[in-house]
């Protein structure tokens, strides 16, 4: 990825999470992988100021407790979290899943290949793209907050 912040992975399946970890290692992607098992755990992580915000979020859709679409609804309504690019990584080829997630302005929808070699190739392309693309700086205040702070300061 373009910077060394962690990648947040929302995945309820431990084997699938291990496959992602293995692929990242094979591709020499140095970003730490933070794995949570569902949307609820992801929100706890993201709202904890003691934890480093991720550079990107990779999310599965079918998860217990809070699924991927429910998570996106919350994250994309949050001024700070909405900036983090969220990429769906799923086995679902369902048209509704695709339309609903694009409506929530996801930054990619990757159907996971079952074949490991093809999966590594997919992750290689995801990494290439998010190394080419700039990423939002989480440490910085949002443009709106900054504007408000400036206005307040002038009073």
């Amino acid at each position: 990825m373009r910077d060394c912040r962690p990648i947040l992975l929302l995945e309820d399946d431990t084997v699938d999470a291990m496959t992602v970890k293995r692929a990242l290692k094979e591709l020499h992607i140095l970003n730490p992988l933070v794995r949570v098992a569902n949307g609820e755990e992801a929100l706890v992580y993201l709202k904890d100021d003691g934890r480093e915000k991720p550079c990107v979020i990779l999310l599965d859709l079918n998860m217990p407790k809070m699924n991927g679409i429910e998570f996106l609804k919350v994250a994309k309504a949050d001024e700070k979290l909405k900036r983090i690019p969220a990429i769906v990584l799923t086995t679902s080829k369902d048209d509704q899943d695709r339309l609903k997630t694009f409506q929530l302005s996801i930054a990619g929808f990757v159907v996971k290949p079952v074949d490991y070699v093809k999966f590594v190739e997919a992750m290689r392309i995801v990494n290439l793209y998010w190394t080419l693309s700039e990423l939002p700086n989480s440490e910085q205040e949002s443009a709106n907050e900054k504007l408000q702070a400036n206005t307040a300061g002038r009073r």
Binding site: K76, K82, P85, S105, A107, S133, P136, A143
Partner: peptide
Amino acid sequence: DERDKMESFEFSVAGYII
């Protein structure tokens, strides 16, 4: 410009290429 980048990501752009 950091501000351009920030504002764009606030609108959930799917990439920002210089």
